[in-house]
Design a protein around this nucleic acid. Structure first.
Lengths: 215, 215, 215, 215
DNA sequence: TATGAATGAGAATTCATTCAT
DNA sequence: TATGAATGAATTCTCATTCAT
């Protein structure tokens, strides 16, 4: 009986494992081809699991995409939490956020592609997500506190909207990386060389800090 | 009567017109659904022309997309040329560029969707374009001159890379507008209300001018 | 009841059966219309199976044709094996081979049409076949032994290449039957009447035996 | 006026020339791809003439194929006439016919492909040809005379049907060349090497002469 | 005689999804 | 939980042929 139970346990674990395996395979596929270009068949192959199982766990392609998107947001939020910005000096905190954003996008290009696809579909998948709150960055509130702390200490100017700032920080990295191939073609210059990347990071820090710092 | 006849001639069997009609219908379709989601059948319906004609003029879907992309770039370049930035004071020139970018994206959301799709496909369509140079913005050079003029007059700081600046200006508008539905959902706030839009434009001007202006 | 159930099982969801049914339907279609003229839709109808299933099992039209070709070769090789030429006297063995070839082509006109199509496509399908060896006739070796036995017994002349002989035996039947409609038109004489067929067989035996027999 | 007339003459010639150019382009196309695989568009390209003109001169694809077929037959008949077999000794005449057939097929592989296609379509195009007589080989009658001459001189055996012999002579070359790629694959030996070709010709002469010659 | 534009009817192939076990 | 078999509705692309000039 204990054997039976243990095998049940294993099976249960397998179920969770299967779900995770599919989710991961789907992430890869969606990142490479977008929502429209992704193929359920290929996701099945990638996960070495039966196609039918995908429907068993995720109902349909759209809901699978939604699950992938939620999972991707959860991961970045998880990492954001570990930054411990509240323990840093305001200037350092802002600089750290800029650098983290840049590095995270660099290391997770699939996140950019995913966002891209989600936007193409007018955020339908996000609006339908029951976990929207989970996607909401806790950083906004924290950023507000940091800006206030900096203002009080005289380092930062006042009247900065943390949402605007957060969006701008993301924008500067996102556009450069997401459009890098287009931009590289147009400018005839490799935007992904180590030197170019380092220059971009410097530029972004200057832009953002130039904005928040009082004069 | 000859006028009537001539107008008839224009209506049918006019290759250039047909080509332009298709291109326009394709622009709409690609903007709405992306490359993957666009349907050749719908493009034919939109243009009130035979589907076969699309292939006659553009070979296949990919090349049609490429043509649409090139045309979209040509249009924005055309508008950029009319800005006459060289005749403005440096600070005003930079502000005008920020405002123009924002307004153009606002009025041409299809341009954003198009870029999105192009990026999803790793700029394949741009790299294959024989007119890449035509897509290259003449603004880069002009922006360099403006930055230099501003530096000489003491308004601007030195050492600004026009490419980085140009990318950042585009980035701040692009990300906000392209991701607006996602962001609106996440922040639980309508980023497209008149007030929000006006605040965004102010913020961007402050960020960019705060960066270029000497202290 | 269990028998009934088992027969039900055989009827539906039997992969091997479906594959065979498709292969057979495809054989008919290709034989009638050639590779280019064959229609996947009609093959689906012939087999009473979903068109999609054809792609599920055979990937595409070319590979389906290849499978049909291989199957046709396998069938004729199977029949050749049953001839037991090695147990016959040399002269009788050669005559039997001529007669068998003639009769097989007569009874399997689809084999000729298939070869025809394959040749039109420069044997692309055979070269790509992983089972080429399987297609190779075991008769060549056997024919060599028969020729040697005949030579030793003094019946046959020496120096006969079994490949040349095999090709010539096939050629005499193939050309007559494959081109029969063209030839009938040109000569204004029905080459498929029983009398004509019997005369052709006699003629071929005379030609081949007149060649192999020592003077 | 004479100028005008001359220009008319040139135009008339151009019409004939255009027809011939199309016919030639079509021959190439049909030889390469068969009737089903041939493309009217490609024939137009090959001939550097407008597609519409093909329909103007030949009504439709089938009739174009028929014209090509007739033209191919006319050409081989033309060459056959020049052989002057009637002036040769019987044995030499038969050998010459075998060699001519072999060489003509070698030099005109398109003739084989054309026959192939015609047969796939059950000689429909030949039966519908008003010029069937033109296709009928005058050689049959001549071959009958040669066989009779040989029989009278004691060189040839009696009772040989010239049609059967003619068909067999064609068959031995046709099958080898038409199926050469299939056969080369199956036998794992290049049937088109100079040595292989010379051996085939010897073999065929032996077979045919071994048959017609008394004893 | 010559041509570029236009078309309808198909053709192969794809894809998300469901069935039966 | 897991899977291979089966499907209908699209989807891109093709092709012979005709139109208008």
């Amino acid at each position: 009986m204990s054997v039976q139970k243990s095998s049940q346990v294993i099976k249960t674990r397998d179920a969770e494992r299967s779900r995770a395996v599919i989710l991961n395979a789907a992430l890869e596929e969606f990142a490479l081809f977008g929502l429209g270009g992704a193929r359920i068949d290929r996701i099945a192959e990638r996960s070495n699991l039966n196609k039918r199982l995908i429907y068993y766990y995720f109902t349909d392609k759209d809901q699978l995409f939604q699950a992938v998107l939620e999972s991707a947001y959860e991961q970045i939020r998880e990492r954001e939490k570990k930054l411990n910005l509240q323990s840093l000096e305001p200037t350092m905190a802002v600089r750290t956020l800029v650098e983290f954003t840049w590095n995270y996008y660099l290391e997770h290009p699939e996140f950019l592609t995913l966002l891209n696809s989600a936007n193409l579909h007018k955020a339908r998948h996000i609006q339908e997500s029951p976990n929207v709150r989970a996607l909401n960055s806790p950083l906004i509130e924290l950023l507000g506190e940091i800006l206030e702390k900096g203002r009080l200490s005289g380092e930062f100017r006042g009247g900065i909207d943390p949402v605007q700032l957060y969006v701008s920080i993301a924008a500067l990295s996102y556009f450069y990386l997401s459009n890098n191939s287009t931009l590289s073609s147009i400018f005839g210059r490799d935007l992904m060389s180590p030197k170019a990347k380092s220059e971009r990071l410097s530029h972004m820090c200057e832009v953002i800090l130039g904005y928040v710092l009082r004069n």
